[in-house]
Amino acid sequence: MEQIKTLEQLSPLILAQFKRGVIANAPLSPASFQREIQRGTLFAQRMDGGLILLRRRDGFWRMSFYLQPDGDVTSLELPKQTVLEIPTRPRDQALKRSETLWEETGFRLLFSRQRMELARRSDEFAVRSDCCVRPAICGEEPKILRLMEENYDRRTACLPTDDELSEDVAAGHIFLAVTCPEGQVAGFLRLLRTKRIAEVRQIVVSEPFRGRGIAGALLNQLTLAEGQKGHVWVAQNNVAALRLYESFGFAKDEWTSTVWIYQ
């Protein structure tokens, strides 16, 4: 495994993979590569007919791959706690088939996700909660981080870095549910907004406050601008979340993903 220290070092490795029939699970943008390089967290491993890119995190690794039709993954030496996500649509059949290959390599399926899309909010969605919802303000990041850590598996939840969290708070993309009049933080919603997409990245209600309509009150903050669509990825076994999103107006789209771990 070699550490990638410059884009110039990375470029030929990736470009060598751009051949007819190549598949990839999570190609990164040049800006993302640059960020990983600056943090010293990007590593590569070559193999016959493919390339593995590993991003080092606190106690685990995130993996991306480029694989040729004749790629041989048997020689790979992966670090323990490597997490791999394979998003596919029905037409990504070769990528879907690669799951068998990774399973044979030693990856274990953790769970599957379903993407849902929102074109228009349901008129019938009603909020019944005694909590107040307001945008998070600068300085509240530790409370949000604590809730994230208590409620998510860091390896699979795509949680923001400290910097990204501060940026999200400053941009008004994080909302807190606060009990009245005690002022306790009961949950939060984190959105990711681009020109065309408003994505629910995380929504959390702390255990003691569940069953009080707080998730609905948080989700109610999701507004769509003209021409914008809503997206959310939901674990397929999270029936309560699937129901909540459906009642808001979300519907399953063609994307699913599988999340794997090499232990």
Binding site: R20, G21, P30
Partner: peptide, 30 residues
């Protein structure tokens, strides 16, 4: 920007472009 092409599609398209037009891209071009 509108999500009509995904990053998975870009990998396929770039591979086909490099093959069909005999050009070489850099990571910065992606």
């Amino acid at each position: 920007d509108d999500g009509l092409l995904e990053s998975l599609d870009i990998v396929t398209i770039v591979a086909e472009i490099m093959d069909a037009f005999e050009v070489e891209l850099n990571v910065e071009d992606l």
